[in-house]
């Protein structure tokens, strides 16, 4: 029952976002609201086993979504901008020193590993190639391995970003 309700609410909110600005009741038209509720119930009936597969309802807390939004706009975007300038410099000059390093974020949940892997991949200059399924270590291809870093067996996640500690933020969101 709880997965059904959560999926229905999630689908309805998504439908509201997609149809914002359609009418005069607030910013939605009455027809869209009725249709949205109807479709959300159908979607929830079909997809309730997919969204909450392992029966943890941690992400139903709106505070975690707020932290996710802050994380995406402040630390993540700043890292991304800085790393983009770095990659632009390397595209122009061609000074690269590529290599695959192993990092040890110490995250426990699948969602946390997904968020960290996606953050690392979206930050230019670092690209997640693989995940060690047992220890949740990530294999990251870096376009410029710092001299000396290739000798260590595992790197800390803070060593591949410039200013912010991504795993600490992600632990706040997903664990």
């Amino acid at each position: 029952m709880i997965p059904f309700l959560l999926t229905a609410i999630f689908a309805f909110l998504l439908y509201l976002l997609l149809t914002a600005g359609s009418g005069n009741l607030g910013v939605w038209s009455p027809a869209e609201l009725v249709m949205g509720a109807f479709l959300a119930l159908i979607v929830a009936a079909i997809a309730r086993t997919f969204l909450c597969r392992n029966h943890t309802y941690r992400m139903a807390n709106p505070l975690r979504w707020l932290v996710l939004a802050v994380y995406a706009v402040v630390p993540f975007f700043l890292e991304m901008a800085k790393a983009n300038l770095d990659v632009a410099y390397r595209v122009i000059t061609g000074r690269i020193r590529p290599g695959i390093v192993r990092i040890e974020p110490g995250l426990k949940t699948d969602l946390g590993v997904l968020l960290l892997a996606n953050s690392i991949t979206l930050t230019p200059g670092t690209l997640t190639v693989g995940v060690d399924e047992e220890t949740n270590d990530l294999f990251v291809h870096m376009i410029h391995v710092k001299p000396g870093a290739e000798k260590k067996p595992t790197l800390d996640a803070t060593e591949i970003t410039a200013w912010f500690d991504f795993p600490a933020w992600i632990r706040r969101i997903a664990e």
């Binding site: 632009a88 595209v91 590529p98 930050t123 230019p124 200059g125 376009i143």
Partner: peptide, 18 residues
């Protein structure tokens, strides 16, 4: 400019997202 598939992925996917 870049030599292999991984470095090309860096340039192609990430800078275009930004």
């Amino acid at each position: 400019r870049f030599p292999d598939v991984y470095t090309r992925l860096h340039a192609e996917t990430k800078t275009t997202t930004f």
